[in-house]
Design a protein around this nucleic acid. Structure first.
Length: 420
RNA sequence: GGAGAGGUGGCAGAGCGGCCGAAUGCGGCAGAUUGCUAAUCUGUUGUCGGGGAAUUGCCCCCGACCGAGGGUUCAAAUCCCUCCCUCUCCGCCA
């Protein structure tokens, strides 16, 4: 969400943000509704004030006087009621429109329509060249008997899978290593709800707009999160934090659920796009400081690339273009990892910086150093690792001619084996 | 799942339908005093929204907020309904 006063004063910046992000946003409709609402609100409040004053006198009146005044009060009350109804409807409309206003992208964000126009910043690691016909992770996994997609589909429909034995162990080892990697850098491991209420979804910016992507438990009006970012970011919603507690650096390792509606026919093979996966996610809640926020963003990116370096996987970092940014994101870096079966880099990580977009929606603030009015925090997040998508890269990049998969060095102590 | 109790300011804890944005205590802040990390006294102390004056920020006016949302009433923290949450007891259970 954007600051309402700021939007009033900078409508052209918001329009430009929408244009760059290729979002259709009715900025003018918002401004209009906002002004109409404020005018109406003044009228309602004035009338309410008068009514209240009159009402207070009523208690001390003589019976005859009261009869007269009562009649008048009733009439005024009726007109107030209809005004109030109008006002509340208008307020709701303003709020709905406000939730759709886009956060302006940072100046460093390149122009572009979609992910094809993202700008590569750097590449790391050697793309492997196999002296034998390379197999896909599905072929490798099925041959080893550690991946079973048909039975996953039998249990839960398309985009579901089973990891058996070594593949499941590999997954756990990677998640475990990722957690240790982040803990050694001062992040606090958290176990968080993955079934959350609407306020969390709206607060982090997934609603409205993302309803179709989330599994919903209607009976309880709860939603399965697509990422623990939602839970981690919402932990302190509605609170005023102490400055000495900031920044909060936290991770969670959680299952993630995505409906993947509207992706029919896209990435249908294998483990790339699935309904349920595990992710170690990093979330940072910090002070309202643009410069700090930018630095932290890069640090969080480095936490992830360092982990990729430890796994010795080839990847590249891209500067996500404006058109590929979400409504609330100010800047985003993706890490894409080399996947031989795709003959290309596939997105495995996403590092986002939000400024105070999420924290405004969540009403998450802190008391600045030395007192004063509470300010909205800044929030950021990034993947540390997500599985099984990362398994694609590991299995395919580490495959051997004999069909086995070499276990990355750093994982060998965890897995107690050299090959899958 | 069954039975009961309750949700009030940073915390604790009062509150008769109008005099309640809310007593009191603690804490916090400011000042006074005391020859010094104490004691005492005095004052002060929420958030949000709209408008005005002002322009980096202090002030003024108005409105809202006693878990959330509805209702009754001229008037609701106070009465009624729904929901959410917390606690106690019983049952069930990883």
């Amino acid at each position: 969400m954007l600051d309402k006063k700021w939007v009033r004063e900078h409508p052209e910046v918001v329009r430009e943000a929408a244009r760059r992000k290729h979002l259709k946003v009715e900025v003018d409709a918002y401004l209009q509704a906002d002004q109409a609402h404020r005018e109406l609100l003044t009228r309602v409040e004035t009338l309410r004030g008068e009514l209240k004053q009159a009402s207070k006198k009523l208690g001390k009146m003589s019976p005859e006087e009261r009869q007269l005044a009562l009649a008048e009060q009733k009439q005024t009350k009726a007109s107030l009621k209809s005004l109030e109804a109008e006002e509340s409807q208008l307020r709701q409309q303003v709020q709905e429109l406000a939730l759709l206003l886009p956060m302006p992208p940072s100046p460093e964000v390149p122009d572009g329509k979609d992910d094809r126009e993202n700008v590569e910043l750097r590449r790391q690691g050697e793309v492997p060249e196999f002296p034998f016909p390379a197999k896909s992770h599905v072929e490798i996994g099925e041959a080893l008997g550690i991946l079973d997609i048909p039975r996953g589909v039998k249990l839960a429909g398309t985009r579901n899978y089973l990891l058996l034995g070594a593949a499941a162990q590999l997954e756990q080892a990677i998640l475990r290593l990722a957690i240790e990697h982040m803990e050694s850098r001062g992040f606090v491991l958290c176990s968080v709800p993955t079934l959350v209420n609407d306020a969390c979804m709206t607060g982090t910016g997934y609603f409205p707009g993302g309803e179709e992507q989330a599994y919903r438990c209607e009976k309880d009006q709860l939603n399965l999160v697509g990422t623990s970012e939602v839970s981690l970011t919402a932990i302190h919603s509605g609170e005023v934090l102490n400055p000495e507690d900031l920044p909060l650096r936290r991770i969670a390792c959680s299952p993630c659920y995505r409906r993947e509606a509207g992706t029919y026919g896209k990435d249908t093979k294998g483990l790339y796009r699935v309904h349920q996966f595990w992710k170690v996610e990093q979330v940072v809640i910090g002070p309202n400081d643009e410069a700090w926020s930018k630095e932290e963003h890069l640090r969080m990116l480095a936490h992830a690339t360092d982990f990729m370096d430890a796994l010795k996987l080839p990847y590249r970092v891209v500067n996500v273009c404006a058109g590929d940014l979400g409504q609330g994101q100010v800047q985003k870096f993706d890490i894409e990892t080399w996947m031989p079966s795709r003959q290309g880099y596939g997105e495995t990580h996403s590092a986002s910086r939000f400024h105070d977009f999420q924290t405004r929606r969540l009403n998450l603030r802190y008391r600045p150093e030395g007192g004063g009015k509470p300010e909205f925090c800044h929030s950021l997040n990034n993947t540390v690792v997500a599985s099984p998508r990362i398994l694609i890269a590991v299995m395919e990049n580490y495959q051997q001619e004999d069909g086995r998969v070499k276990v990355p060095d750093v994982l060998q102590p965890h897995l107690q084996r050299e090959f899958l």
